[in-house]
């Protein structure tokens, strides 16, 4: 399990877990689970397009993440947030379907991009993932207070001078960065599970934001590490374990606090 060919998996997955844990805290606070689902899912067509054009996969992913940020924030001007998000998802996936139909050989690649292929990560991937992850974390921590204030009440945020819509745009950009970090490693669907599961469980354990953020990272690491270990032992996909562990920790938190966190009641 800790052999040399697994080293890259452990390193990269750890970096992804830390990033997703931190960004996930704000996904929960800002009620942005849908956007956290759609940005990664909407970025995978970028990888397909990149392979069509013969350029680096990561470039395609970054390009489509950025497109997603612009698309969602533009549609949000006309529409409720969730509807705007859903519409962008539809468009991105339609493009993805088209690209996939053009490259028949990509079928296995789709599975990896959606559900992740942690084993057999190339060493060349470590550096870009580290850099992107570090940027995502740095930006999130830099915006820590404005993000919290804006989540509490956009009016309060505006009064403090954060600017209407600017925080939402910045947050979507952070999500996109996290996407680009995690997508090639754990896959689109599991980036999402990692951002939502641990952070929502952490919130049941404490009312203090910084502590919740830390717990979110700890739970995220625990989830990823045990998922990799279980996957290695059983040969079942990592994504399955990440998704199920997220569900289990949320359910445990809810049962402990019947009906929601203390402050919701």
């Amino acid at each position: 399990m800790f052999g040399s060919f697994m080293t890259n998996a452990w390193i990269v997955a750890t970096m992804v877990a830390i990033t997703a844990g931190i960004v996930g805290f704000f996904v929960v606070v800002r009620r942005a689970a849908f956007a956290a689902h759609v940005l990664p899912l909407g970025a995978f067509p970028g990888a397909a397009a990149a392979s069509l054009l013969g350029v680096n996969e990561l470039l395609g992913i970054i390009a489509f993440s950025a497109l997603g940020v612009l698309g969602i924030s533009q549609l949000q001007r006309w529409e409720r947030r969730e509807v705007a998000t859903a519409l962008w998802l539809a468009v991105a996936l339609a493009l993805g379907t088209l690209f996939l139909s053009m490259t028949r050989r990509y079928s296995q690649g789709v599975y990896a991009l959606l559900f992740g292929e942690v084993f057999g990560i190339r060493s060349a991937l470590i550096a870009p993932v580290a850099v992107l992850g570090a940027i995502a974390i740095a930006v999130t921590l830099l915006l820590y207070r404005p993000l919290l204030l804006d989540s509490l009440s956009p009016e309060l945020g505006e009064a403090a001078g954060t600017g209407r819509g600017r925080i939402e745009l910045a947050f979507l950009a952070v999500l996109a960065l996290c996407t680009a970090t995690a997508l090639p490693v754990v896959g689109a669907l599991m980036v999402f599970s990692l951002m939502v599961g641990p952070a929502s469980a952490a919130r049941f354990l404490t009312d203090r934001p910084l502590l919740a953020l830390t717990l979110s990272v700890v739970l995220s690491l625990a989830t990823v590490w045990s998922a990799i270990a279980l996957s290695y032992l059983s040969n079942w996909p990592v994504g399955f374990f990440v998704g199920v562990l997220g569900g289990v920790s949320y359910a445990a938190g809810r049962l402990r606090h019947r009906g929601g966190p203390a402050h919701v009641r």
Binding site: A33, F192, S193, V196, G239, G246, G247, Y250
Partner: peptide
């Protein structure tokens, strides 16, 4: 907020099952 998260967590678990 709680509904958003519950939906998200269920989605994650469901997709995990799909993967399996």
């Amino acid at each position: 907020r709680e509904r958003d998260l519950l939906t998200g967590v269920m989605l994650g678990a469901g997709l995990g099952l799909t993967a399996l």
